[in-house]
Design a protein around this nucleic acid. Structure first.
Length: 882
DNA sequence: CAGTGAGCGAGCTTCCGCTTGACTT
C-alpha cells in the first residue's frame, strides 16, 4: 500500500475565493474557507460554558478580574466548519493561513492555529489580488503571524463587548427592556436624533424674489434671478436663522415680502434691460475613484433605490458568480492588470480622446481604511458589459453601475464652461448662470448622484445664448416668487453611510447591518427613503449624552483606532488602555454603577420637545402624551409612525381632547340599534359595534384598511365594514362560497382556501374597465382576482409520493425558493440539487424526513425556534406598518 | 385581532466584525 499523498492545506475566509485559488494551485493543495471568524466571545447566556457560569464576569465573556482574558467559544453554526478543517489538516503536511491581510483577518488566522493546533509547519501568506502569479508569489513569500495585530483585534473586540454589555443593561433598567448601546450604533443614533431635533427646533422663514425670463434678439430665452436692488443684496435662504425663522441679525440684506416684490416687479418691468457684464470661466472635473463598499451602497441607494442590505445581497451574488471583485472593501486601488484592461476598453468603446492621458491612481481618504482588497470592479480583464454577460434584473443594474464607475475612473477629465451674466434693469441687478459641457470626458460613462434630489447633476447642460456687454434684452416674463426656508433633510441610508464612513465609524462588512440594528431596536423607522428616529431613540440618546458624553463622541472610534495602531505597532500594551476604559474611578464599570442611582427612570422616559408643549413619555406600548387636565391625569397614545419633529401642537391637542372625551359614536346601527365607535387599537384604527359588557366581552369589530382615512369613516362606511366578511356568492366553477373581507394583511377575497388580493396600496382591483373595492366588488370580479392570484392556496406538489407509513398523511415533492424539497406535514427536507425528482422513492423521502426531524429535535430546537418566531412576529408588524 | 403607561418577579435581553447558509406564504 502506498501512503496517501499529503497536501498543503490553505485556509481563506470566503468559499468563492477558495474555489478560485484552488483552480490556480492544482491537486497538491487543498483550499478551504473558514467562513469568517471561527471563535468569538459567547453572545448569550446559553453559550457560556457551564464551568464559568458562576463567575461574576461570565456574562461579559471577558475576565475583567484577570487581564481582560477573553472567553472564546465556537459558535454553534461554526462547529461543523471547524471539524471539517480539522479533518483536512490530518491529511496535510503543511498549513498555509491565507486569511485577509487586515486586523480581523490576522486574528482569524491566529484563532485557526489556536483551534487546530497543527503539528505540521504553519506559514502565513498574504496577497492583494487573486491572479495565478500573485498567488504563486504569495506562496513563495510567506511571513510569520503578526501577534501585535492580533492583540489589536482582541482589544477592539473586548472593548466593544465591554461598551455594549455594560451600557445596554442600564438602558433596560431606565428606559425599556431589550434596548442596546454600542460604540457604532449609539453614534449612528446620535446623528439621526440630532438632525431630528434640529428639525423640531426649525422655524421656517419666508422671502420673495423676482425671476425673469429674458431674450436677446432672436436667441433662445434664458432665466435670470434678482440679486440686488439699489446696490443692496436681497435676502435668500442662507440669511435666515434656522431656530427663529427670522433674518439673522448680522445679515445686511433687503428682505422682500409679497407687496415689495410685486411693487418692484411693476416698477422695473418696463424699464431698460441690458447686459452689464459677461464672465466666463473654465472648470475641469476629474472622475471619481472606483467603488468601495460605502460608495457602492450610496450610489445604489441614490440611483437604484436599493437599501444597503439589498445592494450587498446582489453584490454577493455577482461576486460568487465571478462577475465582480470582492464587495466588502475600503480600498480604492486597482490592480495593474485591471487598469490596463479598463484602458483598453475605453480605447475600444469610447475612442482614444476619452482615455485619460496618464494612468490615474487613487488613494483612499477614508479614516481607518485597512485596504485588504481591491476596489470593487468587474472581475478579470474581459470587461464585459452586463448585457454581454447575460445578466438581468437587479444584478444587471448593479453590475452596470460597477462597470461604468470602473471605466470612468480611467477616462479623460470633463471640461465645463460656466457663464455668469449680470443684467441691469433700473436700479435692480439680475444674474443668469449657464453651464456648458465643452468636452464630456468621463461623463460619457458615469456621473455621480446627489443626496439632494433637486440638485443638478454634474453633466447637466444649461448653456446661455451668446451675450455681450450692452446687449438690450426683452422681458418675456417677470414673476414675483415666494420662498420658504426648509429644515435640514433627514438622513437616508446613503447619507448615513457616507457620514459614518467619513467619521471612520463601522466597517464595510457592517454598514448594512448597522442600519438593520438601529431599526430592530426600535430606534429608527424607515419612511420611504428617510431614516426617522423614534422617541425611544431621542430618550436613549439624551441619557447617553448626559451621562456618557465621551462614549458617544463622534471621535471616540477614531481615538480608539489610534490606540489600536499603537498596539499593532508594538508601541503600546493593550492592558493600560482597557484598564482605563473599564476599571478605576473613570472607567465605565464604576461610572455606570455610580450614575445608576441618580437616573430616575421616569425622568429618563419623559421628553420635552421644542415643537410641543405637552410632555411625551416612552411607555411599554410606545410614546404617549401625559398632561394634567382639570386635576386629572390624561394620557393619549401617539399614533405610530409620526416622527418626533412632525408632531404639531394641534395634533397633540386633538389627541388629548379625543382621549378625554372617549371614543365618539358615529350613530346607531340601523338593525342592531347599537352605537358604532371608532377606536384605536394596537393594530391601528378599527370600528366597534356596541359597548363592552358582561354579555358581549368581545363586540363585533372590524379594522379600517390603510386605504381609508379613519377621519373620513362615516356611519355608512362603518356599517359596511362591520358587515365583513361578506358572502359574494358561489364560484361558478366549484359551487363553493366566495367571501370578501379584511385580514391582517389587508382586504382579500377568499374561495376554497385560496386568497385573491386587491392592489396593495389603493385596495382596489381593476377589471373590465371598472375599479372595484371591498364594498362594491362583484362575484365576477372576485373570480378574476382569484384567477390572477399568486397565492397557491393549498400547496400543489410537483409529485405525490404516497402516504407516510406512520400517520398516512401525504408525502410530496414541492418546488421552493431553494430548489425542490420533500414535505410531510410541517417537516421539509431539501433534495440535493442534482437529484432527479422522478427517481425519488417514498422510502427515501421518509428517511430524509426522519433525519431532518431528528436534527431539528436535538440540535436547533430551543434557540432557533424562538428566533424564527421572533422574526416572524417582526415581519408581521413591519408589514402592517407599511 | 383590538387596554394600557404595572405585574408575582424566573431568566433573559445586549456589543462589533468576519463570513455564508437556511429560511420553503
Amino acid at each position: 500500500m502506498v501512503a496517501k499523498a499529503k497536501k498543503t492545506l490553505v485556509i481563506v475566509e470566503s468559499p468563492a475565493k477558495a474555489k478560485k485559488i484552488q483552480s490556480f494551485l492544482g491537486p497538491g493543495y487543498e483550499v478551504l474557507a473558514s467562513y469568517g471568524h471561527v471563535r468569538d466571545l459567547p453572545s448569550k447566556a446559553a453559550e457560556i460554558p457551564e464551568k464559568f457560569k458562576k463567575e461574576a464576569w461570565s456574562n461579559l465573556g471577558v475576565n475583567v478580574e484577570q487581564d481582560y482574558e477573553p472567553l472564546y467559544v465556537i459558535p454553534k453554526d461554526k462547529k461543523d466548519r471547524v471539524k471539517q478543517l480539522r479533518d483536512s489538516l490530518k491529511n496535510a503536511d503543511e498549513l498555509l493561513i491565507a486569511t485577509d491581510e487586515d486586523r480581523e483577518g490576522e486574528s482569524i488566522g491566529w484563532h485557526l492555529i489556536e483551534l487546530l493546533k497543527p503539528k505540521v509547519p504553519v506559514r502565513r501568506m498574504v496577497f492583494a489580488e487573486i491572479t495565478k502569479d500573485a498567488i504563486q508569489r504569495a506562496i513563495n513569500d510567506t511571513r510569520e503571524l503578526d501577534e501585535n495585530l492580533v492583540a489589536a483585534q482582541e482589544t477592539r473586540r473586548v472593548l466593544d463587548r465591554l461598551y455594549g454589555y455594560t451600557l445596554s443593561p442600564l438602558l433596560w433598567k431606565k428606559i425599556a427592556r431589550g434596548l442596546s448601546a454600542g460604540r457604532v450604533q449609539s453614534v449612528a443614533v446620535r446623528m439621526l436624533v440630532e438632525r431630528e431635533l434640529e428639525r423640531a427646533a426649525f422655524r421656517s422663514g419666508s422671502y420673495w424674489d423676482l425671476a425673469a425670463n429674458l431674450k436677446s434678439g432672436e436667441s433662445t430665452p434664458f432665466d435670470a434671478a434678482l440679486q440686488t436692488v439699489g446696490g443692496r443684496k436681497i435676502a435668500s435662504g442662507k440669511d435666515f436663522d434656522e431656530t427663529t425663522g427670522q433674518l439673522k441679525t448680522d445679515a445686511n440684506v433687503l428682505l422682500l415680502d409679497e407687496a415689495a416684490a410685486t411693487e418692484l416687479r411693476e416698477r422695473i418691468e418696463k424699464s431698460d434691460w441690458s447686459v452689464a457684464e459677461v464672465e466666463t470661466r473654465d472648470q475641469k472635473r476629474n472622475p471619481y475613484p472606483p467603488f468601495t463598499t460605502s460608495t457602492l451602497q450610496q450610489e445604489a441607494n441614490r440611483k437604484l433605490s436599493l437599501s444597503a442590505r439589498q445592494t450587498m445581497q446582489i453584490a454577493q451574488k455577482l461576486y460568487e458568480e465571478g462577475h465582480i471583485t470582492y464587495m466588502r472593501t475600503d480600498s480604492v486601488s486597482l490592480s495593474n492588470e485591471a487598469v490596463s484592461a479598463i484602458r483598453r476598453t475605453i480605447d475600444k468603446r469610447y475612442g482614444h480622446d476619452y482615455l485619460s492621458p496618464q494612468t490615474r491612481t487613487f488613494s483612499g481618504k477614508s479614516k481607518n481604511a485597512q485596504e485588504a482588497h481591491e476596489a470593487i470592479r468587474p472581475a478579470g480583464t474581459a470587461m464585459q458589459t452586463a448585457k454581454e454577460l447575460g445578466l438581468s434584473g437587479g444584478q444587471a443594474k448593479l453590475y452596470d453601475l460597477v462597470w461604468k464607475r470602473s471605466v470612468a475612473c480611467q477616462m479623460a477629465e470633463a471640461r465645463l464652461k460656466f457663464q455668469t451674466v449680470t443684467i441691469k434693469a433700473d436700479d435692480a441687478e439680475f444674474r443668469a448662470t449657464g453651464r456648458h459641457v465643452e468636452f464630456p470626458g468621463f461623463f460619457r460613462a458615469y456621473v455621480e448622484g446627489s443626496d439632494d434630489p433637486e440638485a443638478a447633476l454634474d453633466d447637466t447642460e444649461s448653456a446661455l445664448p451668446p451675450l455681450s456687454q450692452g446687449d438690450q434684452l426683452n422681458v418675456e416674463e417677470l414673476k414675483a416668487l415666494p420662498h420658504e426656508t426648509k429644515p435640514p433633510a433627514r438622513f437616508t441610508e446613503a447619507s448615513l453611510v457616507r457620514r459614518l464612513e467619513a467619521e471612520g465609524i463601522g466597517r464595510p462588512s457592517t454598514y448594512a447591518s448597522i442600519i438593520g440594528t438601529v431599526q430592530d431596536r426600535g430606534y429608527v423607522e424607515k419612511q420611504g427613503s428617510q431614516l426617522v428616529p423614534t422617541f425611544t431613540a431621542v430618550a436613549v440618546n439624551r441619557l447617553l449624552q448626559q451621562h456618557f458624553p465621551d462614549l458617544v463622541d463622534y471621535s471616540f472610534t477614531a481615538d480608539m483606532e489610534q490606540k489600536l495602531d499603537d498596539i499593532s505597532n508594538g508601541d503600546k500594551n493593550r492592558l493600560p488602555y482597557l484598564n482605563r476604559f473599564y476599571s478605576g474611578p473613570s472607567g465605565i464599570d464604576q461610572q455606570v454603577k455610580s450614575k445608576e442611582e441618580g437616573i430616575d427612570p421616569r425622568t429618563a422616559c419623559t421628553l420635552k420637545l421644542d415643537n410641543l408643549d405637552p410632555d411625551v413619555r416612552i411607555g411599554r406600548y410606545g410614546p404617549f402624551f401625559e398632561v394634567q387636565s382639570d386635576g386629572e391625569r390624561v394620557t393619549a397614545s401617539i399614533p405610530n409612525h409620526i416622527a418626533p419633529a412632525d408632531l404639531t401642537e394641534e395634533m397633540a391637542e386633538k389627541l388629548i381632547r379625543e382621549k378625554k372625551e372617549g371614543p365618539k359614536s358615529l350613530g346607531a346601527h340601523p338593525e342592531e340599534g347599537l352605537p358604532i365607535y371608532i377606536k384605536n387599537g394596537p393594530y391601528g384604527p378599527y370600528v366597534q359595534l356596541g359597548d363592552i359588557t358582561e354579555e358581549t366581552p368581545k363586540p363585533k369589530r372590524s379594522g379600517i384598511p390603510k386605504s381609508i382615512n379613519p377621519e373620513e369613516v362615516d356611519l355608512e362606511t362603518a356599517i359596511k365594514l362591520l358587515g365583513l366578511p361578506r358572502r359574494l356568492g358561489h364560484h361558478p366553477d366549484t359551487g363553493k362560497v366566495v367571501n370578501v373581507g379584511i385580514g391582517p394583511y389587508g382586504p382579500y377575497v377568499l374561495h376554497d382556501r385560496k386568497y385573491g388580493s386587491f392592489d396593495k396600496k389603493t385596495h382596489t382591483f381593476e377589471y373590465d374597465g371598472e375599479s372595484y373595492n371591498i364594498f362594491n366588488v362583484t362575484l365576477d370580479a372576485a373570480c378574476e382576482m382569484l384567477r390572477q392570484s399568486k397565492s397557491r392556496g393549498p400547496a400543489k406538489p410537483l409529485r405525490e409520493l404516497g402516504e407516510h407509513p406512520e400517520d398516512k398523511k401525504p408525502v410530496g415533492i414541492f418546488e421552493g425558493r431553494y430548489g425542490s424539497y420533500v414535505k410531510h406535514g410541517r417537516t421539509n427536507a431539501t433534495l440535493p440539487k442534482d437529484r432527479d425528482i422522478k427517481e425519488v422513492t417514498l422510502e427515501e423521502a421518509v428517511t430524509m424526513l426522519n433525519e431532518k426531524a431528528a436534527k431539528k429535535g436535538t440540535k436547533k430546537k430551543g434557540a432557533k425556534k424562538k428566533a424564527t418566531k421572533k422574526k416572524a412576529a417582526k415581519k408581521k408588524s413591519a408589514k402592517k406598518k407599511t
